[in-house]
Write a protein that binds this DNA or RNA. Sequence first.
DNA 1: GCTTGTTAGTTACAAAAACAACTATTACAT
DNA 2: ATGTAATAGTTGTTTTTGTAACTAACAAGC
Lengths: 145, 145
Amino acid sequence: MKSAKDFDVRQFLPYLLNQAAEASSLEFQKVYKDKYGMLRNEWRVLFHLGIYGRMTASDIGARAQMHKTKISRAVQRLAERRYLTRTRADKDRRVEYLTLTPAGQQVYRDLKGIAQDYDAALTDSISIEEANMLRGLLLRLAQRD
Amino acid sequence: MKSAKDFDVRQFLPYLLNQAAEASSLEFQKVYKDKYGMLRNEWRVLFHLGIYGRMTASDIGARAQMHKTKISRAVQRLAERRYLTRTRADKDRRVEYLTLTPAGQQVYRDLKGIAQDYDAALTDSISIEEANMLRGLLLRLAQRD
DNA sequence: GCTTGTTAGTTACAAAAACAACTATTACAT
DNA sequence: ATGTAATAGTTGTTTTTGTAACTAACAAGC
């Protein structure tokens, strides 16, 4: 006998999260796509390198919870556009260090600024406290697993 | 001169929303995929029909914010599996009414029950109040646009 | 040294999504 | 009535993703 208080699927958290994520990503996605021809995974890799500086693909994977094939392909395309450089590690030649080029850093700063504005626009329909609580809850949901 | 209080991209709402959405969808996705061979769009169409009863593809599109090609293909596959039936509208023969078959309703109820349990598991790391506030905020974010 | 296992990253192929162009039907204006 | 536009839904083609298999380098045990 299931059904406590009869559940409304429209309130199902994964569904709501997806809807909100899609809606809120759309506009910003257009920016990195139209302005820089980038895909979401590329934007993710780029901003991780922007934040942390030199990293390996695995580091990014661990941080961003991205599968290695996604990273591999994103890195390839970013390298083609000369937004990053890859250099083999000496002590472990399987590993590649990834670093943003000046051009890549430039793009990172630009997109970061736009993200900031966009985030402000998104959150100004809700209060500061709500926004912070929201971020906290989302982090927790993303990390559980 | 951008930068008020220097923005951390890791706190960027669309990013957090995507991370949380992906993480929280994964496990449930396995259920409708492995148990019923369904895709996410099919699950969405199915549960809309489960909730609202007979609808047209456009109705679903408006409700679920899904593009018509997604719906078209989801409906096709659901029809193949005999989870729904399609009947032409008399007064406007472009329109098709979609209705779950008993088998489709069965699947809907099953998945709804699982979703309910899963939602409970997801939200039990956070309080009821937090969960409700979260749902409210997500709805608002999804609807703005 | 050599076998076995593990890790970093790539590549190949299949599945799915995105986007644009299409058909069919209705609506509306002249 | 007839030409134009709009709407419902489908189909075709191109991108992107997912999954699994792969290569290369290292690590550990014997």
